[in-house]
Design a binder for these strands. Structure first.
Lengths: 158, 158
DNA sequence: TTTTTTGCAAAACCTTTGCAGTTGG
DNA sequence: CCAACTGCAAAGGTTTTGCAAAAAA
């Protein structure tokens, strides 16, 4: 029911910069911590805790899932990481560097489209004017059908 | 990854009408089936499977949680029921009668605001024009901060 | 009577927690 | 050295599944 706090996200350009920030905040930087960060820096798109624990399919050392969750939690508190909920299924984690990314999700094919937050500003404003809500699409993205699936569904309904 | 099919939702104005539709579709109408429907007809807002199993706090007979889920699934396939995901936590179920209701959710206080689908048409259209996505807010609602919480957070950030 | 549904138990899935032992600073 | 973290096991919350017994049509 609460929203992740934010630091200056542009400050974290490398694993070592994050490591310094962690230590400054009284945390310790362990091997699992570094591996989680390597996974996040290596992966272009949001990944599940399980994918990280699996070393992104063997590219990195495997980790205890518990330890992945605990590291992600710490990193999220620091403002380095954020997670997003895509349909049902596990949450997906990504670096929060360039500000919160916002997403569109296709409920039919699973496609995840990342958009610049600014592109959604007019929509946020319209909702704010109409309902008073300040919405964001970074934690619970917009869900629907992508253009391809919408076209398919016109032909073959249901 | 699929979206619930739709029948004419206005056809279901009473438990008996739903019961007839169930039987026409080859299903059977049991005591748990009727109690689930009573709960849905009685409750003004979306409720969790557990609330239904608890008889809406004693107003109705209690049910096996398993049976509630199985009945909700059948009813959802029939187009009588739909469920919505509100922040983390259990899904909430409601009658789908007047078409899919769409929602705004406050991630801070949990408030669930139901809106007329037509009110969101301009927003849907804007997103469709800009990204090609056909979004809906009935399954995964808009999440953010309600006016009150937004005001509070301006004063006391974090 | 036949087929669906129930009831109960168990499992699946994602995430969190407890605790003794290890390790970073 | 000591607080923080790991590893492993266990539990928590939500939803699904298996199967014998009960009940609807």
């Amino acid at each position: 029911m609460t929203v992740a706090p934010k630091r200056d996200p542009l400050a974290f350009g490398s694993i070592d910069e994050v490591a310094d920030a962690l230590r400054r905040a009284g945390h310790r930087v362990t091997t699992p911590t570094r591996t989680v960060l390597e996974a996040l820096f290596a992966s272009g798109e949001p990944v599940s805790a399980e994918q990280i624990a699996d070393g992104l399919d063997g590219q990195l050392p495997t980790l205890e899932l518990t330890s992945v969750y605990r590291n992600l939690e710490r990193l999220e508190q620091l403002g380095v990481v954020s997670h997003v909920h895509v349909t049902h299924g596990a949450g997906l984690y990504a670096l929060a560097r360039d500000g919160d990314r916002e997403y569109l999700v296709c409920e039919r094919c699973g496609r995840l489209t990342s958009v610049e937050p600014a592109e959604l500003d007019p929509i946020r404003d319209a909702i704010s004017d109409q309902f008073g809500y300040h919405v964001r699409f970074s934690h619970f993205p917009l869900h629907g059908h992508c253009a391809d699936c919408a076209k398919t569904l016109e032909r073959e309904p249901s």
